[in-house]
């Protein structure tokens, strides 16, 4: 027997999907428009704005920077996040409660404040080069994802198997690598992907940390828009969206998306 849905509820659901998806449809439409300004619905269809992206050196350069920052930042955040998540779960009883909240702060603090704070502390305060600042800043921004997502898979991890390994003669670090890590693999991959996507799409932190000669793709999109209001912006956005969708598709195919929401 099919469940009957109240017509109002149905209409409401359709509205929600409409508001979620409509802007994306508009962007895709605008990217295909054969005009020199952004418009929707598209007037004529062309792919020349996509081709145009690759002719603009700044987009190529910043896309590479974005990828480098995302990969290094995510790696760094996992390097800190995995041991932190491990400790927070393993010693849950012994550690004070606020400690786990501490690792979520970067997403609780308004991003613009966080970005400014990073500018003051690491770029100006420590005088780090722009690229390093970006990597460190992104690593801190996405640290909550590493800690929370890896933590979620550690929450259901049975720590007695760690004791079993040690009783069988396996030293602590080796136990972590051979017994703990393989069993939280899914969580680590999920954390990597979430963190990666967050990093590659970030504007508010990057806007403070980018500097002369070094920028990320989203920041370059903003800069480009200030000068040219042409559909190139829309087509870059579509590409960025496709990268995200592609990553999610890989997750879905290999692990199933459900484990991101678990």
């Amino acid at each position: 027997m099919a469940t009957r849905i109240h017509p109002l509820l149905g209409a409401f659901a359709i509205l929600v999907f409409f508001f979620l998806l409509a802007p994306l449809v508009i962007i895709v439409g605008a990217a295909l428009s054969d005009t020199t300004f952004l418009t929707f619905p598209p007037q004529g269809l062309t792919l020349r704005w996509f081709a145009n992206i690759f002719q603009i050196e700044a987009f190529r350069r910043t896309a590479i920077t974005s990828l480098q920052v995302a990969i290094l930042g995510t790696g760094l955040s996992l390097l800190i996040g995995i041991p932190a998540a491990y400790a927070l779960n393993r010693y849950r009883v012994e550690l004070p409660r606020w400690l786990s909240t501490l690792f979520v702060l970067p997403i609780l603090v308004p991003e613009i404040v966080f970005g400014f704070a990073l500018l003051k502390s690491i770029t100006i305060g420590l005088g780090l080069p722009v690229f390093i600042s970006l990597v460190v800043g992104h690593a801190l921004l996405i640290l909550p994802y590493s800690v929370r997502v890896v933590g979620a898979s550690l929450a259901s991890f049975d720590f007695s198997i760690e004791e079993a390994a040690r009783s069988l003669g396996c030293p602590p670090l080796k136990t972590f690598m051979t017994v703990v890590l393989p069993n939280i693999r899914a969580g680590v991959i999920a954390a990597f992907i979430l963190a990666f996507i967050t990093s590659i799409n970030d504007v508010s932190v990057s806007v403070f940390l980018t500097g002369p000669g070094i920028s990320t793709l989203p920041i370059q999109i903003l800069a480009h828009m200030e000068q040219f209001f042409d559909p190139t912006i829309a087509s870059v956005s579509v590409l960025l969206m496709l990268v995200t969708v592609g990553v999610m598709a890989i997750v879905e195919a290999t692990l199933g998306l459900t484990f991101l929401t678990k």
């Binding site: 004791e163 079993a164 030293p171 393989p182 069993n183």
Partner: peptide
């Protein structure tokens, strides 16, 4: 001595087998 150097066979209540 650390646990891994004690050479003791342990059988746990929840079995504690390596799931992977």
């Amino acid at each position: 001595l650390p646990a891994h150097a004690r050479d003791i066979g342990l059988v746990f209540q929840n079995y504690a087998l390596f799931p992977h």
